[in-house]
Amino acid sequence: MEERRKKGVRLLRSWLTAQQRAQFDRDGYFEVVGCDTGTRYRIRRGTSANIREVDASGRLGMGWCFVPAGELVEGDVMLVQKIALETSELETLNIAKNFYGW
């Protein structure tokens, strides 16, 4: 299981920009911009309930929870979340559950 986890994080990091990688390494999260609305989202380490909207002042807002089917490791889930928000934001949010707070 540990090797799967490491491979998942390596794959995720290979898809991150230099800025996202630095954020992820430093803070345990990275931010993406939704393709449809331009909303900024923070994806933190985790496999569920790990996405929050971020406003222009850096304050956290609405949380979102969506995960792919199957027994995926953390890095794989986070990569799916990144790609979904960057390429199919509104479709993704239509199936996601929203929440406030961590």
Rank of each mutant, 00 (worst) to 15 (best):
Met1Trp: 07
Glu2Gln: 12
Glu2Met: 08
Arg4Cys: 03
Lys6Glu: 12
Lys6Met: 07
Val9Pro: 00
Arg10Leu: 12
Arg10Cys: 06
Leu11Ala: 07
Leu11Arg: 12
Arg13Thr: 07
Ser14His: 05
Ser14Gly: 03
Ser14Ile: 03
Leu16Glu: 03
Ala18Ser: 06
Ala18Cys: 02
Ala18Met: 03
Tyr29Pro: 01
Tyr29Gln: 02
Tyr29Asp: 02
Glu31Asp: 11
Val32His: 01
Val32Asn: 00
Cys35Asp: 10
Asp36Leu: 05
Gly38Ala: 06
Thr39Leu: 04
Thr39Ile: 08
Arg42Gly: 04
Ile43Thr: 04
Thr47Ala: 05
Ala49Phe: 10
Asn50Ala: 04
Asn50Val: 02
Ile51Cys: 00
Arg52Phe: 15
Glu53Phe: 09
Asp55Pro: 14
Asp55Ile: 15
Gly58Ser: 14
Gly58His: 13
Gly58Glu: 11
Arg59Trp: 10
Arg59Tyr: 13
Arg59Ile: 04
Trp64Lys: 03
Trp64Met: 09
Cys65Met: 08
Phe66Val: 15
Pro68Val: 13
Glu71Phe: 05
Glu71Ala: 08
Leu72Trp: 10
Val73His: 05
Val73Gln: 10
Asp76Asn: 04
Asp76Thr: 15
Val77Pro: 00
Leu79Gly: 00
Val80Arg: 02
Val80Ile: 11
Val80Asn: 02
Gln81Cys: 13
Ala84Glu: 13
Glu86Thr: 13
Glu86Trp: 14
Glu86Arg: 12
Thr87Asp: 11
Glu91Asn: 13
Glu91Ile: 12
Thr92Val: 11
Thr92Ile: 07
Ile95Ala: 09
Ala96Cys: 14
Ala96Met: 08
Ala96Tyr: 02
Ala96His: 02
Phe99Asp: 06
Gly101Tyr: 11
Gly101Ser: 11
Gly101Phe: 10
